[in-house]
Every structure is written in structure tokens, then in C-alpha cells.
Amino acid sequence: MSDRNSPSSLMIWLGLADNSFTRQKTVKFGDASAVNSGRAYGIITVLLLLVLWWISTSFGWIKPIYWPSFGAVFSRLNQLMVEGFRNVELWEHVSISVYRVLSGVFYGAIVGVPLGLSMGLSSVARGMFDPIVEFIRPIPPLALIPLIILWFGIDEFAKIFLLFLASLFIMTIAARAGVNSVRISKVHAAYSLGASKLQVLTRVILPNALPEMFTGLRTAMGVCWGTVVAAELVAADKGVGSMIMIAKNFLQTDTVVIGIIIIGLIGFGIEILMRIIEAKLVPWRGKG
């Protein structure tokens, strides 16, 4: 397999050379699978941005109030880790936001999954809930904040209720889509193997709908993470969103930047974690 001209595995990893299979393709333009990772260029881009950041702030091209210097961000991060922000530790700001998202999605799934399943299985449930789901679905959760503040004030319950609503309809629709995607031959097979309706539900329809529900869960996590930050911007004294909002009032741009980076990293982390869990729990996705 190794010929004299074959590039090193490092070059392939960096995307500076194609792997042995792609090298043998003559048609590359238009074949998406022949486009390699281009990792080297990614690394260069990130490094360039960091250098630009460092140069532009240390030469004073940008005022610290618009964008903080590298050093300022690090010393602020250090201070936040030790002292916290406004008498609340940094990890508590982060964890309360994560906690809100997880509980919102949890309750959303607890209610939404049975709702979606029933809508996929019974015309009564479908008829009853369809108008509600179809009406509320296109409303951005943020538009509900004023109403929720009027109803429940601004305490913890109000925030989790908002996230519950945000994830509820995503989970409902995902569960319904899961039921609808069941191939009729599988259901027929189960019945002619002697399964009862309950057994068809638990042993065929549920596992068959699980991949779709996981997609719903992943979407709900993403949407709720966006919503929680926005909700905390409006009214909260703890949480990453409130942290950057309050920091803005004190012109602490470095804290704002740190908050934004944390929000990005956690959003990314949630996505990756959900993908790993999904691959572990529903390895049969798309294999039917």
C-alpha cells in the first residue's frame, strides 16, 4: 500500500494531503466526500484571530471598553474564578443556567413525549392538541417572557416554566414524528407474531421513535440554552446571561467577553455530549 510518494499521516490529519483513497479519485470538484478537513487552515485561522486580538489591543487600536486585551481577560477570568462575580461564584452562574436548561428540557420531555405519542396514535388526541401545538409552535419562546413575568413574576419557577414551554412543543413534535416514521411492516410483523397493542407500543413503536426523540432532545437543549441566556438578560440575578448583562452596566467588557465565550463553549459542549449519548443509546438510528 505504501508507495514512495505517499504523504505522512500528519499531513493527512492536517488536511494538507488527501488520504490514499481520495488521491485515486480523478473527479474531486463536486464530490463532497473528496473535500478533506483542511484542518491546517482552521488552525491558521484561529491563530491569526488570536494574534489580531493581541496586536490590536496591545497597540491600542481598539479601546478596552469595546474589546478587552488578552491580558485583561485572563486576569479577569482569574479574579472571577477566585472571587466570583457580584458575590456569586463563577461556577454557580454557569451551573444555575445549566440547571435551568436541564430542568426545563426534563419537564418538557416528561409532558411532551406522551403528548406526541398520543397524537401519533389516536385521532382524538391528535384533534385535541393539534390546534394548540400548531399555534404555539411558531411563537418564539422569548415572546412569552412578558406574559410569564405577569403570571409568575421573575422567580426560578418562571424561568423554568419558560424553558419548559420552549422544549415542550419540540419534544411533542419529535415524538409524533417518531411514531409516524414507524414502518407499517414492522407493526404488522409484531401483530402477526402475537404481540398485543401494549406490546406493539412498548417493543416496536417506542424503540422505533427513540432516534427521533433524541433529535428532539438535542434540538430542545440547543433552543433552551439560547432561551435561558436571553431570559436571564431580561430578569435574573444569577446565571451567565445575567452576569454579562450586569457586567455591561459596569462597563466590564472583559467579563462580557468571558461570559460570551463560556456560553459558546457550553452550547457546543451540550451538542457534542448529546451526540455521544445518542450514538451510545440509539446506535440503530437510520439503519432500519
Binding site: K186, H188, A189, A190, Y191, S192, L193, V204, V282, G288
Partner: peptide, 19 residues
Amino acid sequence: KGPGADRGMVFQQGALFEW
């Protein structure tokens, strides 16, 4: 009157439980 275990089915494809 309906499906039952006395009549087994073998389908063309895709009727196995992939989970």
C-alpha cells in the same frame, strides 16, 4: 378476524426490529 400468531409473515425487507 385479525392478525394472529397462527399466521406468520415474512416480508420483503425492513420488517426486522433493528434495535
